[in-house]
Design a protein around this nucleic acid. Structure first.
Lengths: 111, 111
DNA sequence: TCTGTATATCACTATATACTGATACATAGA
DNA sequence: TCTATGTATCAGTATATAGTGATATACAGA
């Protein structure tokens, strides 16, 4: 009888929304390897500094990233290991869905 | 050295985007218990038929739901068990982030 | 075919947000 | 203080999408 409140539903939706942008996934992918400064991430993505900064803010606000100042730089890193676990799970789901579709398109799965 | 393509990144983002709406999470929550017709879901959510139908379409397009016609009704169900696993993982993450914030607000975590 | 029911889609409005260039803010060094 | 560098934020535009009521489509029964 586990009932999920509307408020919790909104928080979960916000969490997903933070992950619902290719650029932000790129940022997580970069940070997966090691912590990085904003400048390094701008370099890696080839986007504007303003844009990267804003995306980092969204991920930080959602609780996905942690940050720390070192001199004039801000260093970002992934806040929790579970975030990566989530990305892996989703990648698996997406791959499976793509495979299912491919099978259907080829007429293998039957309908 | 696992490199993720931009195309895959967009697909994953689309997957997350499908989950980034409270109403769609409500729909998944309903369908978690059992398969349902559109009408039943309209009743359960108290939303308009047009709105529910559109959200179901988004979830279906993202590969999260399966559907089947029975007479004049369309019956929707969750396509894969992994989808629920994902929601559970995210709920855990959100709860942990909320707890971390609460601790910080109360000045327990130190900064 | 005609009627009723269930669902999907259309036309439209309102809102959110991704993006950019310019600018403000913060820190380091001379 | 002045200059340089790194980051965050502002102002403005373009686009995506959530929401609605109205309408089209699909099926069941008489």
């Amino acid at each position: 009888m586990k009932k999920v409140s509307t408020d919790a539903m909104e928080q979960v939706a916000e969490y997903f929304r933070a992950l619902a942008e290719p650029r932000r996934l790129r940022l997580l992918s970069e940070l997966r390897q090691a912590e990085r400064s904003v400048g390094q991430l701008v370099e890696a993505l080839g986007a504007t500094q303003s844009n990267v900064s804003k995306h980092l803010e969204v991920l930080f606000d959602a609780g996905l990233l942690a940050r720390e100042r070192r001199g004039t730089s801000t260093i970002y890193r992934i806040a929790e290991a579970e975030t990566l676990q989530l990305c892996d799970l989703v990648c698996g789901n997406v791959a499976r869905i793509a495979a299912r579709r491919a099978g259907r398109d080829a007429g293998l799965g039957g309908g």
